[in-house]
C-alpha cells in the first residue's frame, strides 16, 4: 500500500518553473451588498498548502468557488501564471471538491467514481479503485449505493479522488466535514504528501493542518494572508 501511494505521488508533475501556480490580485467580492473580502492578494506556488480560514459566512466557500471558476461576480484578477506560460488550460491540472460531495445517492460507489474519472478523461481501473477505497476505509462498500452510506463515508468516497487523480492543484472546500479523527489524520497526511510531491493544496476549513501551512484569514470584510 505504501508502495502504491508512492507510485501515485511520483506520477505528479514536478514544478518546471518558479512561476506561482495561482496568483490573486486585489480580489474583492460583495454579496447582497455586504463586502465579504476586499483587496485580497496572494501568490500560491507548487508544493504549498494553503488554508482558507474564517468564521461562518466570511466567504470561504465563495473564495473557493471564485478560484475554481464557478463564481464570476468579483473584482480583481486571478491568474494561473504557470499554466498560462506553459500554454495550458488551468482546469486541466485542477480538481475542485465542493462542500457537497457530488455523489448521486442512487449510484454505487464505483459507478459514481467511474463517471467522475471519465470527466477527467481517466478510466476507472477496478483494482486500483478497490485499493484506494480500502485505504479510505471502505472495503466491501464498492457496490453499495451511496444512499446507504453515512455522511462520513460519503465524504470518504469523494476524497478517494485524492488518490485516484493526478492533479497539480487541489481545491478542497471543507474536506474534513463529517470525518472522524482517523479520517482527518488520513486526509491530512495525504494532503501533505501531495504538497510534498509538488502539488498546490488549497483547502477551506477551521481545522489547521499539522506542520507548515499558509493561511488566508477571511472575516470582517477583509482578507489577511499569513
Amino acid at each position: 500500500m505504501v508502495y502504491f501511494a508512492a507510485f501515485l505521488s511520483c506520477r505528479l508533475r514536478s514544478p518546471v518553473t518558479d512561476l506561482p501556480l495561482l496568483q490573486a490580485e486585489d480580489l474583492t467580492c460583495e454579496r447582497d451588498d455586504r463586502v465579504l473580502f476586499a483587496g485580497l492578494s496572494f501568490a500560491a506556488g507548487a508544493g504549498e498548502v494553503w488554508q482558507v480560514a474564517g468564521p461562518n459566512g466570511a466567504g470561504k466557500t465563495t473564495l473557493m468557488r471564485i478560484i475554481s471558476g464557478l463564481h464570476g461576480h468579483y473584482e480583481g484578477r486571478l491568474h494561473w501564471p504557470a499554466a498560462t506560460s506553459a500554454g495550458q488550460d488551468p482546469r486541466q491540472q485542477m480538481l475542485s471538491l465542493g462542500h457537497r460531495p457530488g455523489l448521486r445517492v442512487e449510484l454505487t460507489v464505483l459507478e459514481n467514481l467511474r463517471w467522475w474519472l471519465a470527466l477527467h478523461q481517466q478510466q476507472l481501473v477496478r483494482d486500483q479503485a478497490e485499493q484506494v477505497l480500502a485505504l479510505v476505509g471502505l472495503t466491501g462498500y464498492e457496490t453499495v449505493p451511496v444512499a446507504q452510506l453515512s455522511a462520513g463515508q460519503t465524504r470518504r468516497v469523494a476524497l478517494s479522488l485524492l488518490w485516484l487523480l493526478d492533479k497539480a492543484v487541489w481545491l478542497l472546500d471543507e474536506p474534513f466535514t463529517a470525518l472522524d479523527a482517523d479520517g482527518v489524520a488520513l486526509i491530512e497526511s495525504r494532503l501533505r504528501e501531495l504538497a510534498d510531491a509538488g502539488a498546490l493544496v488549497l483547502y477551506s476549513s477551521h481545522h489547521r493542518l499539522n506542520g507548515e501551512a499558509r493561511q488566508i484569514c477571511l472575516g470582517r470584510g477583509a482578507g489577511e494572508v499569513r
Partner: peptide, 17 residues
C-alpha cells in the same frame, strides 16, 4: 436538478473539458 442538489453539477462545470 438532482445533479445540482448533490453537487455533481459543480464537478461537471469544473471538469477539464
Amino acid at each position: 436538478r438532482a445533479d445540482h442538489e448533490c453537487g455533481a453539477l459543480e464537478q461537471l462545470l469544473t471538469a477539464p473539458q
